[in-house]
């Protein structure tokens, strides 16, 4: 299973990368929107973890692009953002995300939600 993680905060990337790796994912990392796009040209991830506020292309736009392309039909998208207002969350779901998780998040909850979403029982160990 492939996961793409896009966030501009290196420390968050670090922890998410560790988390997903431990859960058996093949992890791709993007520090901004354009990096994410270039990765998406070569890989079709099963899951994308998207930050919204990034320096060049923001998360909403990325999400829309992914949803507009047929090859990512099966790809699940989760927003992980510090934007916590109701309006932000609704907008995230409207653009085609499957889940919206607000920062700060618990890695334990997050992985549980990911496992539910991906429909597989993966033991944390």
């Amino acid at each position: 299973m492939k996961v793409l993680i896009a966030d501009d905060e290196p420390n968050i990337l670090l922890s998410l990368e560790f988390l997903m790796r431990k859960n058996g994912y093949e992890v791709f990392i993007a520090r901004n929107g354009s990096e994410a796009l270039s990765i998406l040209k070569e890989h079709v991830p099963d899951l994308v973890l998207l930050d919204i506020m990034m320096p060049d292309i923001d998360g909403y736009e990325l999400c829309e692009q992914i949803r507009s392309r047929a090859e990512f039909k099966m790809t699940k998208i989760i927003f992980i953002s510090a934007k916590s207002r109701k309006i932000d969350i609704e907008k995230g779901i409207e653009t085609g995300a499957d889940l919206y998780v607000t920062k700060p998040f618990s890695t334990r909850d997050l992985i549980k939600k990911i496992q539910e979403l991906m429909g597989e029982q993966t033991s944390t160990f």
Binding site: I12, L19, A82, P104
Partner: peptide, 8 residues
């Protein structure tokens, strides 16, 4: 943002 990193 910092709290997220710390907690995670």
């Amino acid at each position: 943002t910092p709290i997220t990193s710390i907690r995670a």
